[in-house]
Every structure is written in C-alpha cells, then in structure tokens.
Design a binder for these strands. Structure first.
Lengths: 233, 233
DNA sequence: TAGTGGTCTAGACCACCGG
DNA sequence: CGGTGGTCTAGACCACTAT
C-alpha cells in the first residue's frame, strides 16, 4: 500500500542541510548514498533525490555519479535576482512611474554594440534612448539597440508612449542572455538626463538577449544616484 | 511494461519553451494541463511536471493549482550569479592572487553595521580590513565585521596569512543572506588602498549572512576600477 | 466543490566514472 | 566493472483555489 510519509522533500532537504550545518558532515565529507539516506529518513529515494537536487543547485553539495554526494569544500555564494519591468520596480516603491522618449532612429550600431551582439557585419537596427522617471524625477537612463529582424513589430509601436522595455519583454521571448554590472562616472550627457553632476559615480548595467543565435536587443541602463540592486542569497 | 520514452525532461521543457516562443501559446494564455501535455508528448505526467517546474523557476510560466499553467504576461528577467572565493576569481583570470591584512581588532560595530545585522544592542565583534590583490595590484578592498558568537573559531586564525573570507566560507555555513550592489565615489582612504584617485566611481557590494536568526558577518567590498560583475540569464 | 498542480512511492533502467 | 546519481513510469493521494 502507498504510505506517503507526510514529509515534503523540503523537510528532507532541511534535515540534511541541518546535519551539514551542525558539522555532522564536514566540508569535503561524503554523505550516505541516496538510498541509505532514504531508508534513514524513511522516505523514497526520489524524495532524497529531489532534496539533494535543491542543495546541489544552491551550491552546498556536489553530486557525481559513482562519486557520491560530497559537502562542497568551497561553497559558492549563489544569488538570484529578478530584473522587473521598470514600471513595476518604480511603482513598488510607491512612486509614480514616468517615461520619456529621447531618441528613436534606425542606424548602424557602433562597434561595441556590434561586438556585444556578435554581429559579423553592421546591420541597421533601431536605436532608442529613453528616460525612466520616478515621481517625475530621473530614475534610469536607457540606451538600447534593437534588432529589426528579431523584433520587426517594434517599428509599429509608438515608443513615445510605450517603453521599448515593456513591449519587448511582453512580445519577444529570449532564450538566453548576459548581464554585466559595473560602476561608471557620469559623462556630461548622461549627467544631464539624470540631473546630476558629471563625474558622479553611477550604477550601470549592460544587458543583451538572444533568441537562439539571433540577437534581439542590447541595452545599457544607467541608474540615477542612490540606486541599489538587491539580491537575496 | 516500463517503456522509458528516452526523452529527458529537458527535451520536454525545450519543446514547451519552443511552443511558447513560436507564439503557439501567447502571453497570458493557458497551457494544457500536465496530464494532457504528457499524453501529447508521450511521456509521464511527472516528466511534464519536472519540465514545467524549470520553466516556472525561470519565470516563463506561472503555475497555480486549479488555475492551471499560464504564460507569464510580464516575464521577469531572472539572473543567477556566483560569488566565488576571491582567490579563485583572481586566479581564473590568470593573475596571481595576493592578500594583505590591514586591520584586525575587536570592537563594537557602528550603527549602520548594527542595523545591517539586526542587532538590538551593540556587541563586540571582530573588525577586519583587508586588501585582495591581483598580480600585486589592488583588486578589492574588504571591510568586514564578524560575529564572535557565530564564528568563535575566527579568533584563532592568523588573518595576516589567511583571508577571513576563505575561512568563513569554509567553516561557517549560513542559511540565508542578502547582497546589495551599488556605485560609490572613492573616499580618500579607500582610494589610497585601491591606488586610484578619490572620487573615482567604484563598484561596491554589501553582503550579510545569517545562520537562522543569528548574524554571522557583514561585509562591504569595494572593487578597484574596471571591475565588472557578470551574470548569465 | 471540482479541477489542477504538488508531492510521494516503488520500481526500473540508464549514464557516468572511480577504483 | 561495479556503484552511484539521473531519469522515467504508473499510480495514488493531497492541497489549493477558481468558479
């Protein structure tokens, strides 16, 4: 008869986690194999498997066929964070979201953009510059290049009213991408948009997305002073 | 008879993902329920479940009991990144790692540190300042406070030879924590350590970790100019 | 309250890799 | 080659919630 032991895989995970925290299994130590843990914890092996999968994803243990499961000697600190639609990010702080188009034109992207998109040769793309506002104050300046091949529909959008950000995220799905975060001193132009002094230290993110091998868009977003990116770990 | 259909859950996931990308299921649309998808894709329901779990974790779909699975209208951009041990981060670039202790003393933490750790009242902690080097050049300046209650063993470590970073990560396990990233202008002292001019825009990360409700350590790491944090999405 | 996802079980075979 | 994790299956019951 099926006798579900009423313990979720999370409980099993936490028990194993606690055992590691307590020092029962030291860094580098090998844990019992799944089957034995399952017996000890009175659950099915697949439940242990599910729990271990989570611990491995969190970077706490390392699992190898034949090699067994070991407590990682050098656990990585793994953080996950969400980049929401800017409108929601702003509104979640209680501020009113605003948006302002600065530039919209078709052009051939400069070398750095070509490189970021892995373009072998220049292809006309849509270049958009926009300012996102929180309570009418500058929040983030966006400099974006959009592939007309990957997102042809973008040309029919009134970008003075709708942010390319939102349209793209809602209409063009990506398979993968890359983000880069760094600090940069504001140049005169960006400083002007963000209403700050040139040279101010600003938080910048570059983001590029693809659908398969086809680039969709690459973006440089420069946040106004005071911006912080949070991530739980 | 058991007839494994030789398709991994990843294949099932990718087929569903492709169907969404192709527009077969538009944003907001409801997907068939797991059981029907399983039949259509000729696999077990648990395989579809595993695939959907991944798509939901990636933020592409939203799953609710009774409500079914829907393509997210506002998919979040979710990034995961690893914060490795600095020694490894430096060495992976081909550079030689160096480490230099600047300060080590027991003291009562200042207000901001108390607040970050949720400390109701001041408690003596170990304060460590150190400089991490890449090929003998400044790489990152670390300003750390360590709970003597959570990590008593740290007092026996020769922090002039071993970075607190490495010892903690190898010996004290945390249950959760928080990271914050932002840009900051170098003050005179940090500028001196990082061999740059005061006012330079620098990439800063604050990191705090707990074991349950007990704080372990809080850290502010200021990277030398040029530092970039990468994250695949 | 009915329908859907969430989880558990027991068993099987496979893929990888260390000894 | 043998042992371990990875995955799949079929079936069952549970938990949540949209209707």
């Amino acid at each position: 008869m099926t006798v579900p032991s009423r313990q979720s895989w999370r409980t099993v995970r936490d028990r194993i986690h606690a055992a590691i925290l307590s020092g029962q299994y030291r860094p580098g130590a090998r844990l019992p194999r799944d089957a034995d843990l399952a017996e000890a914890l009175d659950c099915a092996r697949s439940t242990v498997q599910r729990a271990m999968q989570d611990l491995a994803a969190a970077g706490l243990v390392d699992r190898r066929r034949r090699g067994g499961t070991r407590v990682r000697t050098d656990p990585v600190t793994r953080a996950t964070f969400d980049i929401p639609i800017l409108r929601h990010e702003v509104e979640s702080t209680g501020a009113r979201y605003g948006y302002q188009l600065i530039r919209r034109q078709t052009a051939s992207p400069p070398r750095p953009v070509q490189a970021a998109l892995d373009l072998p040769e220049p292809v006309p793309m849509l270049h958009v510059e926009a300012l996102h506002l929180a309570d009418a104050r500058p929040y983030m300046f966006e400099d974006r290049w959009i592939s007309l091949q990957a997102a042809p529909g973008i040309t029919r959008i009134d970008l003075a009213r709708h942010s390319a950000n939102e349209w793209l995220v809602r209409n063009i799905r990506y398979t993968h991408g890359e983000m880069m975060f760094f600090a940069s001193a504001a140049d005169a132009r960006v400083a002007g948009f963000l209403d700050t002094a040139p040279g101010t230290a600003l938080f910048v993110q570059d983001r590029t997305t693809w659908a398969g091998t086809r680039p969709i868009t690459t973006l440089r977003a420069t946040a106004a002073p005071g911006y912080r990116l949070r991530a739980p770990i």
